[in-house]
């Protein structure tokens, strides 16, 4: 340590605070560095879905009819699961960790606009989501004859993935407030996500899941994300195998939109910058 050499305190009333845009850019950079430099989060969120695709693709090699292989059915499901991991699981664990170790409290004590914290998180989720979709598409198209969407299907792809990611991000932020720390968030959210993946048509054809489990799955976003993405990747002939006999894109939008609203309300009601019981 040495003596302070430069000028002293300034009068902030004479100096403008940094613009929202500048702070948003800073936070986006901080969040992306925090994510990509942490090996656990990268392996868990990015590598795991790719492994699932490769392993399931090698093991479950059968025909679903209409010239569709299981792996082609599996790709939209694993993309939906990848989005769930990049948004809900990632947010729940990282925010619970940052709340428990004091990062959030420390930020609250700075003039950082509070919205910047959430903007940074959203940008990070978007970056990870785009990356994971690209990875899965490249591997699916390169090794498993997955047909990439064309024309208007890209539009459907974009809104289903976007709306699903938004709903799951908001839910993840809300769920983070229930956990005591990152480890307890992980221990709670990971098994729930796994069960949802089993009953929502990710690992098995949704039509093979018992009806009561289908009903449970229909309450959560993952089933609707997977269904909406199947409409993008599978020929329309396969829509007949869905429980409703169609892709139900209107209902997909409705349910995911409802979860966005519910997630937002939960976030506003439950978000805390400090650990419980310290106010």
């Amino acid at each position: 340590m040495s003596a302070v050499s430069t000028t002293g305190t300034t009068d902030p009333s004479r100096t403008a605070l940094p613009s929202l845009g500048a702070v948003y850019r800073t936070r986006a950079g901080v969040e992306c560095k925090e994510f990509f430099r942490q090996r656990e989060s990268v392996v868990f969120t990015l590598v795991f879905p790719v492994l699932l695709l490769v392993v399931f693709g090698a093991v479950l090699d059968y025909d679903l009819g209409s010239g569709v292989t299981f792996i082609q059915y599996f790709v939209p499901g694993v993309i939906a699961a990848g989005i769930l991991g990049a948004s809900l699981q990632n947010m729940a664990i990282s925010i619970a960790t940052e709340r428990a170790d004091g990062t959030l409290k420390s930020l609250y004590g700075t003039p950082m606009p509070r919205s910047a914290y959430f903007v940074g998180k959203v940008v990070q989720v978007l970056a990870v989501t785009v990356l994971i979709i690209a990875l899965l598409l490249v591997i699916g198209a390169g090794f498993y004859d997955v047909v990439l969407p064309s024309g208007a299907d890209w539009l459907t792809f974009a809104w289903v993935a976007g709306l699903g990611a938004a709903a799951c991000t908001l839910l993840g932020i809300a769920v983070s407030s229930l956990a005591r720390n990152g480890r307890s968030a992980s221990a709670t959210v990971t098994p729930i996500a796994l069960v949802l993946q089993f009953i929502s048509g990710v690992f098995f054809e949704f039509s093979q899941v018992p009806v009561w489990m289908q009903t449970v799955a229909s309450l959560f976003p993952l089933k609707w994300m997977a269904q909406g993405l199947r409409s993008v990747f599978l020929p329309d002939a396969l829509a007949a195998q869905e429980p409703a006999g169609s892709w139900e894109l209107g209902r997909v939008a409705l349910v995911l939109g409802a979860w966005c609203v519910a997630g937002l309300v939960l976030c506003v009601l439950t978000f805390r910058w400090q650990e419980r019981g310290t106010r």
Binding site: V30, K33, E34, R37, T97, E98, D101, G102, K105, S106
Partner: peptide, 11 residues
């Protein structure tokens, strides 16, 4: 400067 510190970081 909080008693609990400023948290962990990869930065």
């Amino acid at each position: 400067v909080l008693q609990s510190g400023a948290g962990d970081s990869q930065l």
